[in-house]
Amino acid sequence: MTSFSFRACFDGVVPPTAADPSALGTPPFRAVSYCEPFRAASGYGWYLYPPVDCYIKWDGAAFHWLMENADDWMPLTTIAAQTLIRLTGAEPTDDAFLGLPVFSTPPEPGLLQIWTGLVAVTPPEWSLLVRGVPNLPGSITYEVQDGILETGWWHGPVLGNLRFRRTDEVVQLSRRMPLFAVQPVPCAAYQGKLLRQTEFVPVSDESRAETAKMISDAFSVRDDDSPGGYRREVSRRRRA
């Protein structure tokens, strides 16, 4: 039995894929080859995809959408999963959860909520951070809002929010390109009790020497003649 699982709620849902350390080939060669912090962040979690291929635009007051291969734009308010299934030419089952919205527009202007068609299950005391795809160039038309779902006990729809910041520009959603990323985080990591334990060490004669040694030790893994020293040290420690 796997520790993390994603369950599709209707046909056509795109399975999550493991996040790509090379950020789908978009960054510079040096970043992918030598920068382990970049690779680790890019490869952390899973990619999630939109439930349908379509185009969306916001005119400042309302959303409209155009399904792929359709001719006419339609108002976009709340589109239930069963409605989406019918629009794609299939017949939905009688499952009650298909009445849940795939697209919905909260009262806040420019906000669009999208259900990936997935439910997630994680070990107890673990959550999923829903966010934009790390290190992938984002859209200038919208931004992905971050959210944390406590999927160790809450097994509802895995949702993401897009906040549009430009009007009358068409955005394409493709089932071939990730829209969100989800990353596992322990619940304890974002509790206030832990975050309040942060220590700040001001500069002093005593701390300066200790800090200088920390920095010197950190830089000791670097080699100007051979980039990627930090990455090699990470690999060595993992092997050990």
Rank of each mutant, 00 (worst) to 15 (best):
L179K: 05
D217Y: 00
L179M: 13
L24I: 00
R239F: 00
A181H: 05
D11Y: 02
T2Q: 12
E68N: 08
A18W: 06
S204E: 04
Y44V: 00
G89S: 12
G45S: 12
G60M: 02
C9G: 05
S226E: 13
F200Q: 13
S104M: 08
R86I: 03
S220H: 06
L48N: 10
M74D: 03
V133Q: 03
D205F: 08
P37R: 06
M177P: 00
L194A: 11
A31V: 01
G45L: 07
V13P: 04
D59R: 04
F200K: 12
Q113N: 08
C54L: 15
G138K: 08
M177L: 11
L149T: 00
G192M: 08
M177F: 08
S207D: 07
D225C: 09
G12Q: 01
P28T: 14
A189F: 13
S33T: 10
P124G: 11
L159S: 05
T88E: 15
R196T: 01
D168A: 13
Q197Y: 00
A80V: 01
P21G: 11
Q183N: 04
F63C: 04
T151A: 14
M1A: 13
D95I: 03
R39K: 12
P107W: 00
G152N: 07
W153F: 13
A212F: 10
W73L: 11
M214N: 01
T105L: 03
Q145V: 15
R196Q: 14
V170S: 04
G132I: 04
S226D: 15
V182Q: 03
P101Q: 11
S3L: 15
N69H: 03
R39F: 01
K213N: 02
G45Q: 08
S5H: 12
V185K: 01
P186F: 05
P16H: 02
F38G: 12
A218F: 11
A189E: 12
R222M: 14
D225Y: 05
F97M: 10
E233C: 07
V201I: 15
V171H: 03
S204Y: 10
S5E: 13
L87A: 11
Y142H: 10
C35F: 01
G160N: 07
F38L: 09
S33M: 05
P202S: 12
R232F: 04
L195R: 15
V32K: 09
E169C: 04
L100Y: 10
R166E: 14
D225V: 02
G99T: 06
F97Q: 07
G229H: 06
V52E: 03
P27V: 03
I140F: 00
P202L: 08
F63R: 04
I114K: 08
L87M: 15
W58Y: 14
F164G: 01
R165F: 00
R131L: 10
P37Y: 02
G45V: 10
G110A: 08
S220G: 07
D217E: 09
R222H: 10
R222C: 13
R166V: 05
P37F: 03
A120P: 08
R131E: 13
I148G: 06
S5G: 14
L100T: 00
S3Q: 15
E233K: 11
A19S: 15
G89N: 09
P184L: 10
F164S: 05
E68F: 07
C35M: 07
R7K: 12
P92I: 14
